[in-house]
Design a protein around this nucleic acid. Sequence first.
DNA 1: TCTATTTTTAGAATAATTCTAAATTTATTA
DNA 2: TAATAAATTTAGAATTATTCTAAAAATAGA
Lengths: 126, 126
Amino acid sequence: MTRYEKEIYGIVSNSYEHLTAEKIFEELKKKYPGVVLATVYNNLNKLWEAGMIRKVSVEGMADRYDRMEKHDHLVCRHCGKLADIGLEDLTLSLKGQLGEFFLSYDLKVFYICPECRERLNNENER
Amino acid sequence: MTRYEKEIYGIVSNSYEHLTAEKIFEELKKKYPGVVLATVYNNLNKLWEAGMIRKVSVEGMADRYDRMEKHDHLVCRHCGKLADIGLEDLTLSLKGQLGEFFLSYDLKVFYICPECRERLNNENER
DNA sequence: TCTATTTTTAGAATAATTCTAAATTTATTA
DNA sequence: TAATAAATTTAGAATTATTCTAAAAATAGA
């Protein structure tokens, strides 16, 4: 593992936020001011292809990167923010339904996050 | 509903393919040669916001549009192709786990599609 | 140390999508 | 119906996210 690979892996896998390449770049620049965005993309792709990090894609937003540890995502339909949630594991059920075709799955649950709910409430009261 | 909205809705909701905006544009041009790509995006967004069509997003690929009818997706990890599949409905289980927060969900199952499996086999045999 | 390989940089290029302003179409009202 | 307002479409520029290319730098191997 190269310097940047290691560093980027650390940033992504130790964060409970869901960082975009741009955010990771900003983070990395604190320690390595000379680094360049293409390097971030290079290494994110390498790490993703090696199965060491996740890439989370939601319609119309930049991809976000996430630690591997098993968990699902809540996605706010208003602001797009992601939150982690541990739902029942579907692996067995899916393997049962699909056989050895199965590789992995991605479950996203859409909702309105607490902040947006509150904001929407306030707007309605006015 | 405007002319184009209706037409685009028809294309998307009567197709079992998973069309990109570009493909829909090509399709629409057969009937309305003067139409412009921005119109396609405008109307796709309107239809999506109105909950009349789905938008399917997979890391690193252009968004694809799909009919609403309840179904899940198989995504080939090699070529990115989508296939429909009807898996067990999770709505009740998720409502149970999340309460009225729940809006909807999106389940993608990753696999290697038959074509890619075959291709990979052939390559290995050589 | 010399050579080959890999990684990084810099910045251009591409792809997908959105934006803006003007033109056109459609709907509403006098 | 004419006049006005509102919504849609067009044309093309702009933006955003991401990838590509070629050269430079770093690292690893013989």
